[in-house]
Design a protein around this nucleic acid. Sequence first.
DNA 1: CCCGGCACGGAAAACGTTTTATTCGGTGCC
DNA 2: GGCACCGAATAAAACGTTTTCCGTGCCGGG
Lengths: 362, 362
Amino acid sequence: MGKSVRGLRPAWSYGCNSEGVDAISVRPARIQDVAAAAGVSVSTVSNVLNRPERVNARTAERVRDAVAALDYVPHPGAAGLRTGHSSSIGLVLPDVANSFYSRIARGAADAAYEHGYSLVLCDSGDAPEREQGYFTMLIEQRAVGAVVVPLSADPTRLSRLRERGIPLVLADRAMPAQEGCSVSVDDIAGGRVAVQHLLDRGARDILVVNGERTIRQCADRYQGARQAVRTRREARLGQVVAEEMMTVAYGSDIAHGLDELPDGVFCTNDFLAAGLCRALGERGVKIPEDVQVVGYGDLDLASFVGTTLTTVRQPVEELGRAAVEMLLDEVEARTEHAHEARVFAPALVLRDSTRASSDAPF
Amino acid sequence: MGKSVRGLRPAWSYGCNSEGVDAISVRPARIQDVAAAAGVSVSTVSNVLNRPERVNARTAERVRDAVAALDYVPHPGAAGLRTGHSSSIGLVLPDVANSFYSRIARGAADAAYEHGYSLVLCDSGDAPEREQGYFTMLIEQRAVGAVVVPLSADPTRLSRLRERGIPLVLADRAMPAQEGCSVSVDDIAGGRVAVQHLLDRGARDILVVNGERTIRQCADRYQGARQAVRTRREARLGQVVAEEMMTVAYGSDIAHGLDELPDGVFCTNDFLAAGLCRALGERGVKIPEDVQVVGYGDLDLASFVGTTLTTVRQPVEELGRAAVEMLLDEVEARTEHAHEARVFAPALVLRDSTRASSDAPF
DNA sequence: CCCGGCACGGAAAACGTTTTATTCGGTGCC
DNA sequence: GGCACCGAATAAAACGTTTTCCGTGCCGGG
């Protein structure tokens, strides 16, 4: 941020920048020009545009003709100056290139578009100071609200926005309901359904390959796994925890280090699962005949790890979409707005890694 | 678009929306308040903020203190009203959830942030009318410029923006240089390097699994392949073209339909390659011992298709970054700006699918 | 015929900046 | 001692809207 944004010519200044034959761009029409062309006052034009019911149908049509003739495009910036708010929404997330977040972005973009808002992409790139920088930017722009996937769980980070009265929806992190809205996926249910599936397929000796237990998602998914195992007396549950990152390499390490094989494995993310599947394959273990594997997240890669991977799908786009819609509900609410922590159900996606025969994996 | 964005309370109107204990948000400080607090005029404050060199150091400091004390945040919208332009850049692309585009978005976001611009995410979702809708939105906002990955090659689609004098940079599609800037990857070089690699590894009977030849990228990659083959007298080149989509399923079909096996395959995208690898595996064909395979694109999944996949990596983030920077160069240029069609070199990523022994695949 | 009310449309004041003139003390020079 | 000039600071006019308050002309009822 910060490098100055000045010294720019307005777009319509003396045209032709290349070969001289360029179209000379003209000063865009203002509401005043429209008014003049239609032979009415400025306020009438504004009314036609914003509350057509207040103006006579015949005059309205004259105005609309003038708008079309002049190719008039209203200037929401100027309007915002008067009304006190813009029509843009911030989307703050750690990394759009990460497929999880880019799916959130997709959903958010859809929703924002449908409601006529513009979405400002704020990729904090895992840098807290940059996250703060974006908060400042959103405050400057008088953003109407923000959807945030915060870098850390520390809620004080968000205080700057809240102080300025910018409504917030947290995504993928729960928030105490009285503090505001949030959207997230039910990870306990996800863990439960994954392990339940393994049990249904006949597995009895279940291993959970997990991330650090301090990560809420990991803890929840394990808890779900426990719930599922409790429903079967004869089932056993083990866990191995990745100390560092939940990566493909680590999944591979786990698989190579395993002394005795379980008959069902639940990896709490797809990277772990991918690595594990591959390494098991190298050890000559057949999936799903010898070991059944379930991943989590339904990354694109989940379909392709040698044998395709049964996994848990999270409705990520829905998260983004719902976040924006809840935000707008709060923002547009003329009456009261009750904060809400909406939780989505994950779904199991069946693929080869848990299925003995295969009926068309795609 | 279009649903009205009105009837919103300004952010600072009577506060407390939940339990009454909420912070009552106050009307944000204006430049006028700062001026009063510092005992100077409005214009002096503006000068301190925008061209500090014009104002006495002592007064400047007084002003800055006042700014800090009041927690003053300037309002770029109002400034834009005066100066005639905003500080936002449009990023128009077909689908952020597609990893190729989300990587572009990442690069663009980084660059925009570093230059103090905000990036408006416009996901056209493969719908031409939505793309046009976003163009309108960018015109309304007086965006300072736009980076566009257009849905179709038809250049007239872009005319609306150009008429309004909004600078454009095309990404992943070349543009005649006198029309404006563009960024793209050298697909001919990519095809050449891929097939060259197969030849170097000893393959002589090369098959290209391609998409429709009307797609420029496909045609270019094939042309590169031909160039490589011509350098070896004894090498042969075949091609099979996917009529419809370049999908995993199609790659799989190809592999199953093959009568006699080549010893090297170049798939012009990673989806095709993934499907092909898997299907060959099912037929008992060993990769890379029997057939060596090179994909294209370096999707995340490329690392994981059973045997990891040698492929061509495109500097996608660079594309996004460069696009924004070229845009800003044009926009901020006080002097002339020469349009440029910058072309990036793809790089080959070596993985198991072409390597007999394996030295650490990651 | 006069008056109250109604339906339309208009004038003008905000909104928060930037920027062009302009003023105002000083200072050095003749 | 007067003059021109200079740096520093200011007043005021935009920028393009929205919206509040009024004016006007028309109608029907008394």
